[in-house]
Design a protein around this nucleic acid. Structure first.
Ligand SMILES: [Zn+2]
Ligand SMILES: [Zn+2]
Lengths: 214, 214
DNA sequence: GCTCTTGAAGATCAC
DNA sequence: GTGATCTACAAGAGC
């Protein structure tokens, strides 16, 4: 019915560590990054870090660097339900997290990247599904509770649309009615039925005038 | 469970027409009003207005004057589910009408009276239950739909309370945790893990500093 | 009892 | 994809 929390690998970065390239000399910015990643990879191996699922030492540099999760490249690919990345907007929409929860890096680590749509747009904020789910399930009590909330919000959203439509229809009808009413005013004069409200006199026709004490 | 749309005669004005008094001369403000009402009552009789329920000519002056409903004093008392008056606040709470709907006198006639709680407070706005119900039932589709909406809002209100409580508990826990964390900082220095976001460098500890290009 | 202020939440749109 | 802006709505304090 609706695309809810679908696992999507759009923003899982290309696996840089499989690329073959070790030449020195001048490097383009991206190549610099690759080299840096490679260095960090070596460091992680030297630290003796192992994947929490399969004990491989082929730790994913970025997942460890930004989210402090030890997982190998293989397990990362095998378990997108844990290690795929979500944009901030997706976190809001799919996991019903708020702006302030997402803003606080102490609650949820974030990987800040240039916006892929246009480089001049605001940076893209990426979160790790595993951490987002843990946070959201805890916030709503359980996955089932989150699902309930989600469906409820969908309903509300739909109702709002219907309501808005209905209101617009009424506005329109009112306008035509008002036009008719105005033309009738030309024939029979309207008698104002003022009521005092503070310093204002109000008529049911909508007119209100200031009240002067004598 | 909750006091919903209970019929309440708090603001049904005292029945002025049964009071015996016809003396002339100087009148106190309230007595003036009574006399005026009496004159208007006579006028209504002369116009040949009759109660829409029992054909009596003993029309309630104020109900006719402010709400344009022809009803006798007796029927008014007999049918509080139609002719009792509601304050604006009650209309909002019991019939889920909005500020803007209630403000517009063309939608719902209103009788403006001094505030009974304190004369310096804002005027009290009284609406006729019959008209309010018609408007609200129409707005929500039916009385049953309105009831549904009402219960839904009650639930939401309750949930908000729970949520607020839970949040406050979390805030408290966080504070104690932060205090512990801060004391640990005295022992082992925190290494900032800055990420660039626009012209700002942000660390996951919350610190952010401006970025200077070199 | 009413209104004003404040705040969280949804929808839109330019970047 | 994001953040700023606008809107409607709810809760609280003061009048
Ligand atoms: Zn592994
Ligand atoms: Zn009658």
């Amino acid at each position: 019915m609706f695309k809810k929390r679908k696992i999507d690998l759009k923003y899982c970065e290309y696996d840089l560590t499989t690329m073959e390239d070790t030449r020195g000399g001048f490097l383009l910015p991206q190549e610099e990054t690759e080299q840096k990643n490679e260095q960090e990879q070596v460091q992680l191996v030297e630290q003796g870090l192992k994947c929490q699922h399969c004990e491989s030492i082929d730790i994913d540099v970025n997942i460890y660097k930004y989210y402090k999760e030890q997982v190998c490249l293989n397990c990362k690919k095998e378990k997108p339900e844990l290690y795929s990345l979500l944009t901030k907007t997706e976190c809001r929409q799919d996991y019903l997290l708020t702006e302030s929860e997402l803003r606080d890096q102490k609650k949820l680590p974030v990987w800040i990247k240039p916006n892929p749509h246009k480089s001049t747009y605001s940076n893209m904020l990426l979160y790790l599904r595993k951490q987002v789910e843990q946070f959201a399930f805890n916030k709503y009590g359980s996955e089932e509770m989150l699902d309930k909330e989600f469906e409820k919000k969908e309903k509300i959203k739909e109702e709002r649309k219907v309501k808005k439509h209905k209101k617009q229809m009424n506005e329109l009808r009112k306008k035509t009615r008002t036009t008719l009413w105005n033309s009738r005013q030309l024939e029979e004069e309207h008698k104002h039925d003022y009521q005092q409200d503070g310093d204002i006199l109000k008529c049911s026709c909508g007119l209100s005038v200031e009240y002067e004490e004598f």
